[in-house]
Simulated scan of single mutants.
Amino acid sequence: MDDWDDIRWFLAVAEHGSTLAAARASRVSQSTIFRRITALETALGLPLFERRSSGYTLTEDGAALLPIAAEIAANVERLTRVAAERQRSVAGTVRLSAPEIVLAHVLPPVIGRFRALYPAVKLELVATDRRVDLASGEADVALRGGLAPTDPSLFGRRLTYDRSVVAASRAYADAAGLPQSLADLRDHPLIRFDPPGAPTALLEQLIACLPDEAVVLRPNTMTAVVAAVRGGLGLGILPRFVVDREADLVHAPIVLPLPVFELWIITHERRRHSAPVRALMDFVAAYVLAGQPPSDA
Rank of each mutant, 00 (worst) to 15 (best):
D2H: 13
D5Q: 11
D5Y: 07
D6N: 05
D6M: 04
R8T: 06
F10T: 00
L11I: 07
A12F: 00
V13S: 07
A14T: 01
E15R: 09
S18M: 10
T19M: 10
A21M: 01
S26I: 05
V28N: 08
S29I: 10
R35S: 06
I37D: 00
I37Q: 02
L40K: 10
L40A: 11
E41I: 09
E41N: 10
E41V: 14
E41G: 12
T42A: 04
A43C: 04
L46M: 09
P47C: 13
F49G: 05
S53C: 00
E60K: 01
A63D: 08
A63E: 09
L65C: 13
L65E: 02
P67R: 09
A69M: 09
A70S: 11
A73V: 02
A74H: 07
A74F: 10
A74L: 13
N75G: 11
V76Y: 02
V76I: 06
L79G: 00
L79C: 03
R81S: 11
A83S: 13
A84I: 10
R86I: 14
R88G: 05
R88A: 12
A91I: 07
G92A: 07
V94L: 05
I101V: 13
V102A: 08
A104M: 12
L107K: 08
P108F: 12
V110W: 03
I111L: 15
I111Q: 06
G112S: 12
F114T: 01
F114W: 10
F114V: 01
A120G: 14
K122S: 04
D129W: 15
A135L: 07
A135D: 12
S136K: 08
D140C: 00
D140H: 01
V141T: 08
P149S: 08
P152V: 01
S153D: 15
G156L: 05
R157E: 08
Y161F: 15
R163D: 08
R163I: 01
S164E: 15
V165A: 06
V165W: 00
V165I: 11
A171S: 05
A176C: 04
G177R: 02
A183D: 14
P189K: 00
P189R: 00
I191E: 11
I191L: 09
D194R: 13
P195M: 00
T200K: 05
L206F: 11
A214D: 06
V215R: 13
L217T: 12
P219W: 15
T223N: 10
T223G: 07
A224N: 14
A224K: 15
V225W: 03
A227Y: 12
A227K: 15
L235R: 06
L235D: 13
V242F: 11
V243C: 15
A247N: 04
A252H: 07
P253H: 00
I254G: 06
L256A: 06
L256G: 12
F261A: 09
I266S: 02
R270F: 10
H273S: 14
P276L: 05
P276Y: 09
M281D: 06
F283A: 12
F283L: 03
V284P: 00
A285H: 10
A285I: 02
A286S: 12
A286K: 02
Y287S: 12
P294Y: 03
D296K: 09
